[in-house]
């Protein structure tokens, strides 16, 4: 498998580490136990197009959001996550 890193270009699978579904959002700090439990443990088992987190540890160390079809391994999009890449200028 090959992933086109938005920062480094097309790279081979071995440079990346897979995490999992990118859809679950971490609950706010004051969210209750149930919401955090869902976030930590409950995952959909998606057969088809899935948005996933991948880490380019063998390259730029960016966390990426990869849209991949779990049935065909076809990758249709790769985007940087919100905090990936350049430092926050003027933040």
């Amino acid at each position: 498998m090959r992933i086109i890193c938005p920062f480094c270009g097309e790279r081979e699978l071995g440079e990346f580490t897979y995490l999992g579904d990118a859809k679950p959002q971490r609950p706010a700090a004051d969210a209750g136990e149930d919401a955090v439990y869902d976030y930590v443990y409950l995952r959909d088992n998606i057969a088809g197009v899935m948005s996933e987190h991948w880490y380019h540890g063998g390259g730029c160390r960016a966390w990426l959001k990869v849209t991949r079809n779990t049935l065909t391994h076809e990758i249709s999009a790769v985007e940087p996550t919100a905090g990936a890449g350049a430092a926050k200028v003027g933040a």
């Binding site: 960016a62 996550t81 905090g83």
Partner: peptide, 17 residues
């Protein structure tokens, strides 16, 4: 840990400089 901290920085807390 580096990978975990980068995840925290880039994905969970991108608002932090």
């Amino acid at each position: 840990v580096m990978q975990h901290l980068e995840f925290c920085r880039q994905v969970l807390f991108p608002e932090l400089d």
